[in-house]
Design a protein around this nucleic acid. Structure first.
Length: 279
DNA sequence: ATACCGACCTGTCAGC
DNA sequence: TGCTGACAGGTCGGTA
């Protein structure tokens, strides 16, 4: 489900709701595939911890934890940085902060009881999402799409032989771009998804860089894209689905030239483009 | 080293 | 109505 703009929207919403809260207890569904750390480590790290902040790294949501007010840590751990709680939403994950008496949704895999009496709930029907604990300074494998410079961006794709569409989805290059925004950025830059990175000119790479920044920033402003089930921390829908120009518009007329939008499959993912506008 | 492919899961929708 | 197959916003490990 969620790509960078959706994850950013959720992280901001969750941050406003839970900053400063203490985690009183943790319940996990026990489904192992939803966890990337042992359940005991997750419970032990979270219980009693204070949530200092919540932010996005790539497609991950990072909770910064501390134990302020507790007994000071033993000396050897003095320099140990604060642990982090990492949430990846996969395709269908959602994270909401709700009153404790709200009915528990099907496919709920984690519930954090907060000091305010509310609960932070992780729901994920397809179980592609993951919960984990990081020791400190969690890093995404690739560059942040909104922080990378134009030259670094160009260099990244200039040396990859894969179709540019696949390269944009490769989280080791850029962390945060998914299927929707890859298609949208390629359309705006007028680049065909099957073009190999090595064949792109510097001008094309530069246009692609600008296009990607634009679609991501515009979508964050709109609160992300809602297709079926995505909602932010407050349960609100995003609005960027109304601004999509190619994604999900197979056979509909191109907004620029009226040619029907094509859908093809590139390494197992659908790619949408205009065969006239994108060369 | 690089690049595809299936697998991991459940839900929904179109077509028969 | 109900079955079947295709498809879905993501990522991983195995294989060529």
């Amino acid at each position: 489900m969620p790509e960078l703009p959706e994850v950013e929207t959720i992280a901001r919403g969750v941050a406003v709701s839970v900053r400063g809260e203490r985690v009183e207890s943790v319940w996990l569904s026990g489904r192992k595939q939803t966890l990337n750390s042992p359940p005991r480590a997750i419970a032990r790290t979270l219980e009693g911890a204070r949530i200092d902040d919540v932010h996005r790294v790539g497609k991950h949501i990072v909770f910064e934890l501390s134990r302020g007010g507790d007994v000071p840590p033993p000396k050897k751990e003095q320099s140990a940085p604060h642990p982090q709680f990492i949430v990846h939403l996969g395709m269908t994950g959602s994270l909401t902060v709700v009153p404790a008496d709200k009915e528990t949704a099907k496919h709920t895999h984690a519930v954090l009881k907060l000091s305010s009496g509310r609960e932070l709930r992780f729901v994920d029907p397809r179980m592609f999402g993951k919960l984990a604990i990081a020791k400190d300074r969690f890093r995404a494998p690739g560059h942040e799409p909104l922080d990378v410079g134009a030259e670094a961006f160009a260099a990244l794709f200039k040396r990859t032989k894969a179709p540019i569409k696949s390269a944009l989805l490769n989280q080791k290059l850029l962390s945060g771009v998914g299927n929707i925004y890859a298609d949208e950025a390629l359309f705006r830059a007028r680049v065909r998804p099957r073009r190999r990175g090595t064949t792109l000119t510097h001008a094309e790479l530069h246009k692609l860089f600008e296009a990607l920044q634009a679609v991501l920033n515009e979508s964050i402003k709109a609160g992300g894209t809602t297709f079926s089930d995505y909602v932010d921390a407050q349960g609100e829908w995003g609005n960027y689905q109304f601004d999509l120009r190619v994604y999900g518009r197979e056979d509909e007329p191109c907004v620029r030239c009226k040619t029907p939008i094509k859908r093809i499959v590139i390494s197992g993912r659908s790619a949408h483009y205009c065969r006239k506008c994108q060369s």
